[in-house]
Write a protein that binds this DNA or RNA. Structure first.
Length: 154
DNA sequence: GCCAACGTTGGC
DNA sequence: GCCAACGTTGGC
């Protein structure tokens, strides 16, 4: 089973938005980065778990746990001229963008902030992409050791 | 709001 | 294939 970290801006789609969805499940659409797409399309499997990370907000951090609810599929918003993330170069016959459906497992008992994670950047979290300078990946792999360590902070 | 870092685009 | 220009991300 794989482990991941997925960013979302709480003002746009935060953990409470996910909690309010039917089945606590939502298509993780709008990802328009090839590295992130490749991870969703090629590596993420149903049952994989992911941290829900709030980005671009006053206190960024991990706020919940999710699981992959269904295998990757083409992102339909790429085909919709009305959609914010419409991409005319994505052809339904040869889709450019993919998504996975994510289900909320639970909120964390407390937010584990980016500042707190940084305290371990020279230790157990040395290789966590989130802590690398200039990191902009919205989806990234987390090793089992990193996963367990972060959860132990809760 | 600022701005560093990064990915993408497109001219050549 | 190079690389400058541009747009976006995201912490602060």
């Amino acid at each position: 089973m794989g482990h991941w970290l997925m960013k979302s801006e709480p003002d746009v789609f935060g953990i409470d938005h996910l909690a309010a969805r039917p089945g606590h499940t939502e298509p993780w659409d709008g990802v328009r980065n090839y590295q992130a797409r490749n991870m969703m399309r090629d590596q993420m499997q149903p049952g994989d778990q992911a941290f829900f990370y709030h980005s671009n907000c006053a206190e960024p951090g991990i706020v919940g746990l999710m699981e992959v609810a269904a295998p990757a599929r083409p992102d339909p918003t790429a085909f919709d001229p009305e959609a914010k993330y419409f991409d005319p170069k994505s052809d339904p016959e040869n889709p450019r963008w993919y998504l996975v459906d994510m289900r909320l497992l639970r909120h964390l008992a407390r937010k584990i902030t980016l500042a707190e994670l940084r305290a371990y950047a020279d230790g157990p979290l040395a290789d966590l992409p989130l802590l690398r300078r200039g990191n902009r990946l919205s989806i990234m792999p987390v090793t089992l050791a990193q996963w367990d360590f972060i959860l132990s902070l809760e």
